[in-house]
Design a protein around this nucleic acid. Structure first.
Length: 471
RNA sequence: GGGGCCGUGGGGUAGCCUGGUGAUCCUCCCGGCUUUGGGAGCCGGUGACCCGAGUUCAAAUCUCGGCGGCCCCA
């Protein structure tokens, strides 16, 4: 028997407790901002990232670049280094000797990759180049660190980097990347706001940045994905050129886009409830849990049926919980851990050739004929994902409010996301950014709203923007 | 950047103000008995005062420093 979780309304406490109790991360590692993946958490990571890999593998190749970047490369792109210099960890010594050239622990890998891209790319035939890697990155965060959300070591940064011969082609790639990320988050049943970040908040060195934001239960947003068009900024710095068909030399155009384990923070936070994790079937470490209801004298028969069911469903991640606890305790335990489908088998079910089934998101119980289970799983999984997505959109809608005047907006930001209109002037943008973070011009949002209106600051023609407190 | 609060078994806590008892309670964990259709009960057991210095006959308790955590404001 273990204690209840704090209610989800107390989001911060709920999140922190759940992360530990469900055995996702151990927060006790003795360095601030670094956390340990438990085996259970790591299984979630693995299935989430295998979706991401599957999507990436369609047109990218996986690579691995070193974690250490020489100061001379990291510092080459002026804007880029300005954006990261306060957060870089430096390796300054090799044993007792001080290094001639300090080595940075990658905060991101542009400056590790692009000097090599210069060597890899000679002619138009080498383009486009599309690669990705899933690696750890380091950032010396000074604000509150939080498991999966704000880390000093991001353990699971999926970063893709592409190189093209024209700006238009890079532009196309950005669109594709946005499409991939949409698909990824749809499979996790997580609705996102897709925005074009304002100038002052774009990726350092990029022409522009498109970002995916999830809305957390406390109304703050979590940036869970970014797509950058780098133009030829980095190509000029790192001399990435190619020979055209005509024999001329031209700078290449680049994009990069990334997703980190924040996607798992969103997954947990958006779907979870007062009892714990609710995970889509596809990513649940235990997709189906079978609970035997044992009575003295009838154990053997019930266990035999449970094991048969498990064998029949072995193409999924099934677990028969034969532990000593009573059934009720097991229900709570597997609800905490987000087992998607629960199957209960007791003497009654054995007698009738049925089982009791319960879905983690709904929690109602119903009887199913034993020989029908196997053929229904896919359908159940699909419906469950759909229900979860619909519910997530509804919850999101509750936390987003159209605020056409500034007073309302000021009042709402902090409780949730405000939608409003903003003209393109820098002054109005900065003014609005004082209220909360301007996420940028809204490109897509799973709600219906007018895309144009009057600027909330000056009253001129403006575009739809989102403003929120962010993680 | 500025301010405040707090570090006690694996987790959560009482004790600290006013120094001295076998360091409290819940939970987890281990062993046993008994039970099992939504967090069972009883018995027994393991396990802790963040680190360093100082004050003192005596420090979880007071002082200083370090490290770590949390919160508020900009």
């Amino acid at each position: 028997m273990s204690e209840k979780l704090p209610p989800k309304e107390e989001f911060s406490e709920w999140y922190h407790e759940l992360i530990q109790r469900a055995e996702i991360m151990d927060v006790r590692y003795p360095v601030k901002g670094l956390y340990v993946w438990y085996p259970f958490g790591f299984k979630i990571r693995r299935s989430v990232y295998s979706i991401l890999r599957e999507i990436m593998d369609r047109e990218h190749e996986e690579v691995y670049f070193p974690a250490l970047i020489p100061e001379t490369e990291l510092g080459k792109e002026g804007e880029h280094i300005k954006g990261f210099e306060d957060e870089v960890y430096w390796v300054t010594h090799g044993g007792k000797d001080e290094l001639d050239v300090k080595l940075a622990l990658r905060p991101t890998s542009e400056t590790a990759m692009y000097p090599m891209f210069k060597l890899w790319i000679r002619s138009h035939a080498d383009l486009p180049l599309k690669v990705y890697q899933i690696v750890n990155t380091f950032r010396y965060e000074t604000k509150h660190t939080r498991p999966l959300i704000r880390l000093r070591e991001i353990t699971s940064f999926k970063e893709a980097h592409t190189v093209h011969s024209t700006f238009e082609e890079a532009e196309e790639q950005v669109k594709k990347a946005v499409g991939y990320y949409k698909e990824f988050y749809e499979r996790l049943a997580i609705p996102c706001i897709i925005c074009k970040r304002p100038e002052w908040d774009k990726f350092p060195g990029a022409v522009y940045t498109i970002a995916f934001d999830a809305v957390m239960p406390d109304g703050r947003t979590l940036q869970v994905g970014t797509v950058h068009n780098l133009g030829d900024n980095f190509a000029k710095t790192f001399e990435i050129t190619y020979e055209t068909v005509n024999g001329e030399h031209s700078f290449a155009y680049q994009t990069c886009y990334g997703i980190s384990e924040r996607c798992i923070a969103a997954l947990i936070s958006i779907h979870g409830d007062d009892l714990g994790l609710v995970l889509p079937f596809e990513v649940s470490p235990v997709q189906i849990v079978v609970i035997p209801v044992l009575y003295k004298g009838k154990e053997e028969e019930v266990l035999r049926v449970c094991r048969e069911i498990s064998e029949e469903l072995k193409r999924y991640r099934v677990f028969v919980d034969e532990g000593e606890e009573r059934p009720g305790a097991k229900y709570y335990k597997w609800e905490l851990k987000g087992a998607a489908i629960r199957i209960e088998v007791g003497p009654r079910e054995v007698e009738e050739n049925t089982v009791v089934v319960s879905f983690r998101d709904e929690r109602r119980k119903f009887k199913v004929k034993r020989d029908e289970i196997s053929s229904k799983i896919e359908e159940w999984a699909k419906e469950m994902r759909k229900r979860m997505y619909t519910k997530a959109v509804e919850e999101m809608a509750k936390r987003i409010k159209m605020c056409k005047d500034l007073e309302k907006l000021v009042e709402w930001v902090g409780k949730g996301v405000a939608l409003t209109y903003l003209c393109r002037s820098e002054r109005c943008g900065e003014e609005l950014d004082k209220v909360g973070s301007v996420l940028g011009e809204v490109l897509e949002i799973p709600l219906s709203v007018e895309s144009k209106g009057k600027c909330v600051i000056c009253g001129e023609e403006g575009r739809l923007v989102a403003v929120a407190k962010t993680y």
